[in-house]
Design a protein around this nucleic acid. Sequence first.
DNA 1: CGAATTTGACCCGCGC
DNA 2: GCGCGGGTCAAATTCG
Length: 383
Amino acid sequence: MIKEKISSCVHPSDGIVESDKEVELDATKAKLEKVREENEKLKLLLSTVLTDYKSLQMHVSNVIRPQHEASMELDINSHDDFCVDVSLRLGRSDLNVSKNVDEIDKISLDKISDEISEGSDKKRSALGLGFQIQSCEDPDTDPTMKLDYLSKDFKNTKADNKCISSRKDIKTARNEDHQEALEVREHPGLKKTRVCVKAPCEDPSINDGCQWRKYGQKTAKANPLPRAYYRCSMSSNCPVRKQVQRCGEDDTSAYMTTYEGTHDHPLPMEATHMAAGTSAAASLLQSGSSSSASLSYYFPFHHVSFSTTNAHPTVTLDLTRPNYDPNQLPAHSSLSFSSSSSDRPSPSNSHTLSFSGLRSQAPLTKYSQMAPLSHQTKLSGQQ
DNA sequence: CGAATTTGACCCGCGC
DNA sequence: GCGCGGGTCAAATTCG
Ligand SMILES: [Zn+2]
């Protein structure tokens, strides 16, 4: 493309031909953009499938567990192994991963791929092109990062298991864990992904459907707004942490909740949507996606600011202001995405895309399931 | 009485 | 090395 442009500068006499070429170029650009959009949609779909599958797998393992209580730990480990395999295949569909991959799952994934690409070989090749462009834009990211992340997760789970098995000397176990973390940190530029939820009230924090055990509270130096630390207590070794920070004055109940990690146990059915949304976003981050598909699939009417910083890939769901634009149809949601290698995502680098309701039916029904959650967790006590 | 919360102590990485 | 600050632990306390 660049070469063509250069040649058009060098040979200004061939005006007509060059303008033809320019038109062609524009058409190709438009095509590329379309293809990229397709690619993003596909990525989101894959993340969704992965998340749903994980959730289902955890439910299944939970059902089966009572029958094989002795081999519980083994089950967990093999399950994580499985996840790694799946993610590998998701990251790069052309790699044939053997191990314990379920054939049915493979078939369904292929089906989805076909569905997305509408059976067009042309589009499929274009998909690869989209990927190339993306990695050009974002050289730091790589599809294999996802694998790295998951294997890291697996390691952490193992460390936690160690923690439990030898509760005597937590210190040594903790050291092991720490060493593991250091070892993991040596993996090129990949740290824990986090999901922030900014909300006007406590609702979202109690909406996640998990039991949270408070284990600490700190007040920041600058503003003495307390920050509480919670840990998931549904499973004894669930690695998920969350911290809730008050934002604004004492009476304004604005909270910023940050989730970190992945649950290793089934979540209540009512909570899976929220979790799927957040973890799908996290998966997108891990997959090295520099731009993001419409996460508004999960959170219609709300801003989903999706920003990558050097330190922590972070998804921020801003639920403080409903995303309602009178110029738009209600089914439209806007997704503001910013990808930046600096600590502060620059506004110039971020742009807002509006989607014409990707599957406008499904998200609405799914979203409506979030409403009854508030009272579900309320009876589990204030958090 | 067991489970959850509170809260000061403690740990550890980081900058000076 | 030292102090600071964010994050975590665990004894004491409260809660159900
Ligand atoms: Zn959990």
